[in-house]
Amino acid sequence: MKGKVTGIGGVFFKCADVEATKAWYKKHLGIDAGDYGATFKAAENQTTAWSPFKQKTDYLGERDQQFMVNYRVDDLDALMQRLAAADIESIKPIEHYEYGSFAWVVDIDGRRIELWQPADESIL
C-alpha cells in the first residue's frame, strides 16, 4: 500500500531545561544531542515498537506522563551499573524475556524511560 507510515521518524518532548536535559542524556546514556537533537542510524533488521496503552496504565510512569521512550542498548548490565554509580536508581529489577532484557529509570525531568537490550544482538 502506498502512502502509509513506515516507522518512527523521531521522538519529541518538552522539558524544563533543554541544555540540562541534553547534558543528562549525554552523560548517562551516551546520546550526543546538538542544536536539533540526536539521530540514530538503524540497522536493516532493527525494528521500532509502536503501542498504544490504556489511559489508566502505570507502565509509562506517573499518570501525567503521556509517553515513554524505549532506548535500545548494547549492554544493559554495564549501563545499569554506570547509572547506579551515578545514583540513578532503577524503578524495578531488570526483567528478562525471550526477546530481550528491560530496565526502567527516571530522567532528569522525572520521565520514566525504558532501556532494552534485545536478545538477538543482530538487531542492535
Rank of each mutant, 00 (worst) to 15 (best):
A16H: 12
K22P: 01
F13C: 05
V5P: 06
P93I: 04
W50T: 14
D35S: 11
G30S: 02
A103N: 08
S101H: 08
Q81V: 13
G3Y: 02
K26F: 00
L60Q: 10
K54M: 14
P93T: 02
A103M: 06
K92Y: 10
L76G: 01
A33G: 04
A78Q: 14
K2N: 13
D77T: 13
L124T: 07
L124W: 07
D109S: 03
H96N: 12
S51E: 13
I31T: 04
R82N: 09
L60S: 06
Q81I: 12
D75T: 07
P93E: 08
D64Y: 15
L124E: 02
I88R: 01
V105H: 02
D58M: 15
I123N: 09
E19K: 14
Q66A: 14
L115R: 02
K26W: 05
D64P: 13
W116N: 03
M1G: 08
E98G: 09
P52H: 05
K27H: 05
S122C: 04
E44C: 09
V69T: 11
S122D: 08
I8L: 04
W24M: 03
H96S: 13
L124I: 12
V73T: 11
E62H: 15
K27E: 08
F13K: 04
V69I: 05
A38F: 01
R111T: 03
